[in-house]
């Protein structure tokens, strides 16, 4: 007799309750949907916040850069290299057989029409994100006279294309426009 309720319960679960199983299934599924929706704020809070997204354009005055010189600016908290190429550097870059490159691109594809001497790239090695040398005066420019990443020995040429070393891609050219002849707006 002490177990009779348990027995009745078992009987119920076999007959009566089964046809109402959908209630439990619906309740549990709804709870699951609710729990999953809670993940939306928890996950998206880690994505860039509104102030970070808003700070994603940078204006750089390029008028003072002499041929052969480069400056470092900051774009999205990362270094941005702006280099004025000399005629010799342009010539060297154009002399390379594009099809032989690891990441085939011409200098023209990496600059803006009318401003082929101005090379704007991210200062972030495409291997693992170190800052390559070669932008400042007197730094090691690597075997190809462009940039050299000291972390794992990636060599970039005068068009900042990867020529030797572990990096898979050329230094990235960000989206930018000339707002005037001497000012670029990156981002």
């Amino acid at each position: 007799m002490a177990t009779d309720t348990a027995v009745t319960r078992d009987l119920e679960s076999q007959e009566g309750v089964r046809r109402r199983d959908w209630i439990h299934i619906a309740a549990l599924s709804t709870a699951g949907v609710g729990a999953a929706s809670v993940l939306i704020p928890l996950i998206s809070q880690m994505a860039p916040s509104a102030d970070v997204l808003a700070a994603s354009t940078t204006e750089v005055d390029v008028s003072a850069i002499q041929p052969g010189q480069a400056i470092k600016a900051v774009f999205r908290k990362q270094p941005l290299f702006v280099r004025r190429l000399t005629a010799k550097e342009i010539e060297e870059a154009n002399a390379v057989d594009v099809s032989s490159l690891r990441d085939p691109q011409t200098l023209a594809e990496r600059t803006k029409p009318g401003h082929e001497d101005l090379l704007v790239t991210m200062g972030v090695c495409t291997h693992l994100g170190c800052v390559p040398l070669g932008a400042a005066e007197g730094e090691n420019k690597g075997e190809f006279g462009g940039y050299f990443c000291p972390c794992h020995g990636s060599h970039y040429d005068t068009a900042a294309r990867i020529r030797k070393g572990p990096a898979p891609k050329n230094l990235m050219v960000p989206d930018y426009t000339f707002t005037s002849d001497t000012v670029i707006r990156v981002g």
Binding site: I40, P41, L42, S44, Q45, A47, S49, A50, D51, V52
Partner: peptide, 13 residues
């Protein structure tokens, strides 16, 4: 205030 204004769903959290 940064949480309240800039972080995604920061106000909710």
């Amino acid at each position: 205030e940064h949480i309240m204004r800039n972080v995604n769903y920061g106000w909710l959290l």
